[in-house]
């Protein structure tokens, strides 16, 4: 329950902070932190334009996408407190529920019959497919390390102490951060601010969405970032009491948003053909974590 509230609160500010960081870095003042949320509210109040090519899939998809993110949010724990749902193997459920949302957002893009949106759909499905093994190897190694199989038990029994485990936590943060960049269509993979449809991934998929549906998609995107941020926070807080854990949650979310803003300010997007290589690298980083776990457990003789 706690995690749900915290994720909602973090989602309110997260994108605003990214935008603000980018503005400051480029020497502008920038909009207020809550501007993205006002944008969403404005969208919720608007009517919509639908393409004549589309079918009911196009109208249903944003709902499914948003619901899948909500559902994924329910299994994320916060330190000692469970997510609303917590059961053995919930991280599999997490990944697959998010995949359901992606399935629908991809077919919605194909529903418009636009070549650009089809292209975005193709890229989205390819990149998210490559990110799956990294997540599963990461969670598998953490399950091995902790001896448990649910998010809450895994995170609350991670023993951060030895030097190797610090290195591992750093690597795991890197992997989760990068997965969140892929899922959230952020800089090194995708450039949300580009003006050319050919170079977009996520943005080009939702070109035809408008009004309420677009609002749902944007909200889901904000929530997704906060969810991955919460997972990263969970790597560190373990069983720390709440009076320290909650401030550190916001601190880490803030740092993550600033980091993303800085990355977007000072980096260019990778070439599209290099993206798969980059994402596969994540899998090998996950394998490093796995070997680290084997080292800690002294499975190597």
């Amino acid at each position: 329950m706690l995690s749900l509230l915290l994720i909602f609160m973090a989602a309110l500010f997260f994108t605003g902070i990214i935008v603000r960081t980018k503005s400051l870095a480029s020497g502008r003042k920038g909009p207020g932190i809550l501007q993205p949320i006002w944008d969403v509210f404005r969208l919720f109040r608007k009517g919509a334009v639908y393409s004549e090519t589309t079918s009911f899939i196009f109208q249903l998809a944003p709902t499914v996408y948003f619901s899948s993110v909500l559902m994924a949010m329910l299994v994320v724990p916060f330190g000692r407190s469970h997510g609303i749902l917590s059961f053995n193997g919930d991280f599999i459920f997490f990944a697959y529920v998010l995949a359901l949302g992606k399935f629908f957002s991809i077919i919605a893009a194909l529903d418009t019959g636009s070549s650009f949106e089809g292209m975005g759909a193709s890229r989205e499905s390819l990149y998210s497919m490559f990110a799956e093994p990294a997540f599963f190897i990461l969670m598998g190694s953490l399950a091995l390390l902790s001896g448990h199989t649910s998010f809450q038990e895994i995170f609350s029994s991670l023993h951060i102490g030895s030097q190797i485990s610090y290195a591992m936590a750093a690597l795991a943060t890197f992997v989760l951060l990068m997965i969140s960049m892929i899922e959230g269509s952020r800089m090194p993979i995708d450039d949300p601010k580009t003006h050319l449809e050919l170079t977009m991934i996520h943005e080009v998929m939702i070109l035809d969405n408008s009004g309420f549906d677009l609002g749902l998609i944007l909200t889901a995107g904000y929530l997704k970032f906060a969810i991955y941020g919460a997972l990263i926070v969970n790597l560190f807080i373990g069983v720390i009491p709440f009076q320290y854990a909650i401030p550190s949650f916001f601190a880490i979310q803030f740092l993550m948003a600033v980091a993303i803003g800085l990355i977007e300010s000072f980096m260019a997007r990778f070439r599209m053909s290099h993206n798969p290589q980059f994402i596969v690298v994540l899998t090998s980083v996950s394998l490093l974590i796995f070997f680290g776990v084997l080292l800690i457990l002294q499975k190597f003789i």
Binding site: K46, A48, V49, Y50, E52, S114, F116
Partner: peptide, 11 residues
Amino acid sequence: RSARIGATWGC
């Protein structure tokens, strides 16, 4: 709400 039907955005 109003919902208009239009062509797919062709960029």
